[in-house]
Design a protein around this nucleic acid. Structure first.
Lengths: 350, 350
DNA sequence: CGCCGGACGTGTTACGTATAACGTCGCGGG
DNA sequence: CCCGCGACGTTATACGTAACACGTCCGGCG
């Protein structure tokens, strides 16, 4: 390291680099900017680069933004970061962003009540664009009004406010899950459905209904629940102790809910998967931490965030190509098996 | 696909506000800046505020930063965001930051090998200060060199590079945990210790050793493990099947590891807590998702992040007051009980 | 030989804000 | 009466960068 003196490191400016390299400040900008390839001779360009390296030059981003009007910063709006899923979405988005010298700043949409804090004040950064989960309904109205490029994650295709949309093929995941359960012989299924008004959950309910529609004897119930272990426990208890024949499978909208459901099943003296099958969604770390491990649908969370960022970059480049829905995969594990009443015609559990 | 003809509302500037209010641009800055209270008459000040509201004026942050030299942005360096713990730390830090018109941008230190990406390039934002977990060793050297105010989270007090430090009272948590286990009658304890070279984990090992030092018959072993369910499973298996008398309690450095340990215990045909007690650390959502629920040490993750941000703000204000260590609390749950060999002199399990 | 045009650099400007420096005005004390 | 001072406003400037608009030099073509 060279910058030994200068207790206040007094960041080098492009003018300092220019002086050191014996050129004008404009030349420094031309060289380091990367555009205008042939604009400066190779010799001087190299001198500039050397001087910049020597001085540890870092362009002043505030000045650059002021000049260019762009900030190379995107806002990621998520319902709540404390969930592992969105932490992974962020990671994926940030990775792609970094490859393009972009930053990602988070806006965790306040889950509780109260007036949503102004997303822009809160972000305390000027933004080039926004990537928003459809689950963060609260903050969306303010964002739409801003006129910024907006990429929606898992949103209603009919929503026209977005500049682009990236979707997971949730419906296909539900179909795989339904096929898995019905293939095992399950007919009475209760859907522990997230009580969140969001496209991604609406689609699950619809796809599930469609998947079971043609099947003789299929009975589908719906039990709303919040997205927590405890809420899942309560919902499962309600579903299992209600009137009518007991379901043989609980299809949960989230691994966390499924974990709660497992606890409820056991508290009723029932076994998983022998008496009741339970399935989750997302494939969080939690899915393999509980016993038995959860049959679940793996959502490519990081790739989801990455795709969102790519879409935003494309929009900013003026080349918005609509990406296909991201595939999801069923991960069969120990929490599903043929129902007790099923005859042994299908030996294939686990 | 909307912003085609780019009717960008051409963000209002302070000069526009000045014109609308019939004052000079400087007056606008004086009024909206909030400092210099008596500098402008109440009447004109109100006119300025009204005009600003009317035009939807938002100060250009790039210009402000360029002028003031500060950005009101802090960098939070975490080992990996996908862990619930650090997601909560972020949330706490962001909350305090928002109260002071600060933003928080994340730098997830690359966990894998490879040269750590430049934190500053990656953040793509100019920074006023840094809050860093001691677990993110990789990125620290570059950060120290930057000469930015640096607040360390859970770091060695001997480390002098930091402007301030915020610590959890981890040692006390370990003491509580050890007292809980020995009080139940446990004497042979194996520590499933994180194989991460970080102050916070070193302190756990040391405190545990100290807590068991005076106890006759106490036997403490150490089994290193990575921080994942699977690694915890393997480590617990090793610990339980090794030579010598089997431990009666597994003290894990993390809830995730404890979850893995539980699985190992059961695969060996042993019961929790009757045969083996297992304890975790952190009190993540996962702790109550597994069965039995984990006895663990609750770390105030959000408050931890909030305290870090407060400390950074204090440093920036020039009033760095050293905060006390944040208290942690033992949460006894179902995964601990007296060991099999213990006589019934102490009836108090759960 | 004169002129044109490409290659290579440089001077200059503007981005929007915060604030130092500089008036101006009215009033009260000397 | 005049000076000075406090209250109120304004003018001017600088922050560091990107990029436009000009040169200047030189080789080649008519």
């Amino acid at each position: 390291m060279t910058s030994h003196e200068a207790p206040p490191p007094a960041r080098a400016t492009s003018r300092d680099v220019a002086r050191a390299a014996g050129v004008s400040q404009a030349a420094v900008s031309l060289v380091l900017g990367g555009k205008w390839p042939g604009r400066v001779s190779a010799a001087k360009a190299e001198a500039v680069r050397a001087a910049a390296r020597e001085l540890g030059y870092r362009p002043n981003l505030a000045a650059r933004s002021l000049r260019t009007g762009r900030t190379r910063t995107a806002l990621l709006v998520v319902p709540a970061l404390t969930t592992e899923f969105f932490a992974r979405v962020y990671t994926g988005a940030a990775r792609i962003a970094a490859d393009h010298d972009f930053g990602v700043v988070l806006y965790p949409s306040p889950e509780g009540t109260g007036p949503a804090r102004d997303p822009f004040a809160s972000a305390s950064a000027a933004l080039d664009g926004v990537i928003a989960s459809s689950m963060a309904a609260g903050a969306l109205t303010a964002l739409r009004a801003a006129g910024l490029p907006l990429v929606m994650l898992d949103s209603d295709p009919g929503d026209t406010a977005a500049s682009a949309a990236v979707n997971l093929d949730i419906a296909d995941g539900v179909r795989q899950l339904a096929a898995h359960l019905t293939g095992l012989g399950h007919r009475r299924i209760t859907h522990l459905a997230a009580d969140v008004d969001s496209w991604t959950f609406a689609v699950r309910a619809r796809a599930l209904r469609a998947a079971l529609a043609g099947l003789p004897g299929a009975v589908l119930h719906r039990q709303p629940t919040a997205l927590s272990v405890e809420a899942g426990l309560r919902a499962a208890h309600t579903a299992l102790t209600g009137p009518g024949p007991r379901p043989t499978a609980l299809l949960c909208d989230d691994d966390v809910v499924a974990a709660g459901a497992c606890k409820a099943v056991r508290r009723l003296g029932l076994r998983i998967p022998e008496d009741i099958s339970v399935t989750g969604f997302d494939d969080l770390a939690l899915a393999v931490a509980v016993e038995p491990e959860l049959t679940t649908v793996r959502l490519p969370a990081e790739e989801f965030g990455a795709a969102g960022m790519r879409a935003l970059l494309a929009v900013l480049d003026g080349t918005p190509a609509e990406p296909p829905a991201l595939p999801v995969t069923l991960v069969p594990r120990g929490s599903t098996a043929p129902p007790p009443a099923a005859n042994a015609t299908r030996p294939g559990g686990r």
